[in-house]
Write a protein that binds this DNA or RNA. Structure first.
Lengths: 144, 144
DNA sequence: AGTTAACGGTTGATTTTGTAACTAACAACG
DNA sequence: CGTTGTTAGTTACAAAATCAACCGTTAACT
């Protein structure tokens, strides 16, 4: 009402969310329509593809996803034959997850698309801008 | 698996989402715990607080929220006595929304907190970094 | 050992979102 | 006027996220 020079577009939580949503959109169409995956599913797939065998808890710590999300994503990926579980005999609570051949293939496809998508996103920005953007985002994300 | 120099943290849709989530967290606690609001609700509240009386469709165009979200947020805000509806006599499909006194008060409270929160978020960044960040985000969000 | 607490992971109930179909109001055209 | 199309907003139903309680396993303490 009264002019207080505060624009919604300048409020970072709002702006970040708008940017995040816009940036996710075209990638979402790929993993959803072409691979029948949910956001949590490609995330789990990427963790295993990038870092190799790990447990659900490991993924949770790296990704900050809640464990129920991960549990359900793992179930879904398993039923798609993209990963397998293996009990840890040293501690039978742990379950090591690893990608199957099909999972690796899906990961390779998707990560190539992701790379291209990322490049397209920063195409509108200068190299400096893009670099600053990533640094600032990492700081905001609380990763260093 | 094979090292292909692609980190999840460098994939913008992922990084943006992490940053957006982290940045929203502490503000969420305010509007949720203290005002019993949802994200869509404070957004609608802010639109009305900032730009004055407008219709649900107007809010949808500015915020890119889907109309069902807005419809539900409006219902919720109305039942909290934060806004009132008024039919447009010139075109009885339109409904003008405006904040009540209580709504204005809540908006003032929240927007002051939002400003402080925003300042705290960019506190870790240099002025240049913060400026570049906002420009880049706006571009990614497709606003200009 | 026996009890209690903590951890990894799953399940079920509730809430929130997304998608489609819907009602009511208006406009355009014959 | 009447039919057809469009717009504003709501509602119903399905998909998904959230939260709490849960089971099996290990650790810690007595």
């Amino acid at each position: 009402m009264e002019n207080d020079s505060f624009e919604l577009q300048d409020f970072l939580p709002y702006l970040l969310n708008q940017a995040a949503e816009a940036a996710s959109l075209s990638f979402q169409r790929v993993y959803r329509d072409r691979f029948g995956m949910l956001r949590t599913e490609w995330r789990v797939l990427f963790h295993l593809g990038l870092y190799g065998r790990m447990t659900a808890t490991d993924i949770g710590q790296r990704s900050r996803m809640h464990k129920t999300k991960i549990s359900r994503a793992v179930t879904a990926l398993e039923s798609k034959r993209f990963l397998t579980r293996a009990r840890d005999d040293a501690d039978r609570r742990n379950e090591f997850l690893s990608l199957t051949m099909a999972g690796e293939a899906a990961y390779r496809d998707l990560s190539a698309i992701a790379r291209a998508h990322d490049a397209a996103l920063v195409a509108g920005l200068s190299a400096d801008q893009a670099a600053v953007l990533r640094v600032a985002l990492k700081r905001l994300a609380g990763r260093k």
